[in-house]
Write a protein that binds this DNA or RNA. Sequence first.
DNA 1: CTACTGGTTCGACGTGTGTCAACATAGACG
DNA 2: CGTCTATGTTGACACACGTCGAACCAGTAG
Lengths: 121, 121
Amino acid sequence: MSNAKALPEAGGQGVAPCCPPLAERPMTAEEAETAARMFKALGDPVRLRLFSAVASHEGGEACVCDISDVGVSQPTVSHHLKKLKEAGLLTSERRGTWVYYRVEPSVLAAMGRLLALPSAV
Amino acid sequence: MSNAKALPEAGGQGVAPCCPPLAERPMTAEEAETAARMFKALGDPVRLRLFSAVASHEGGEACVCDISDVGVSQPTVSHHLKKLKEAGLLTSERRGTWVYYRVEPSVLAAMGRLLALPSAV
DNA sequence: CTACTGGTTCGACGTGTGTCAACATAGACG
DNA sequence: CGTCTATGTTGACACACGTCGAACCAGTAG
């Protein structure tokens, strides 16, 4: 599992609309499994704080040293960041001594679209 | 735990904006714990399908008998519906023999707002 | 080269979670 | 009343998950 296959085409520029809005039609088992992976990635308080820290950081990226005071040990921080990366929510890049994490806006947008309720029910 | 205390004021009409957008500022531990509860509730494929089935059903409500063909036993369906209810995403109402579940739009909207990225990054 | 700092991986432990079979409850029907 | 259908609850099990300490890699600086 050297390559994260969590999201379909996270590297593409096509925004990857994994699924239709939740309320449009009952999700299929496949769609649900794909979407649940993203929600589960944000279903942990520590991961949510890490993700928020990266997302709210200047330039949309942050090095681990800047966000690792969330109350858990550094190995745990690394573990959670890896999970977020596998879910396609973050990307990492090594620059010299430090590793910088950055949010993946398209995936976030896809999740937001999933939660959108139709104005006319 | 006879009463669900997962969400602050799920019964109120004030929409309960649990947290600011993820990218606005680093979430506090409390905010993260509250928000993670909602995401975790949707972090399971079966729950996601159940929720989608209710949300997409006519009138925004559905009885259990209509959505229980998701590949798991009925006790499991009931278990997941309870979890969704505890998370504040669904409400249930008994009408005669059947129990109807309904989505909680305000909570869904709050989650969508959480994922919103500022237009200017 | 060695020493040091920043991050990741490994191995292990305790807890949480999804699942089912069996039983219990609520209402309808006769 | 008893019985039947529709849901919820209980208990038990296997598996996944979060967490840590220790060991390990990547770069930098002397």
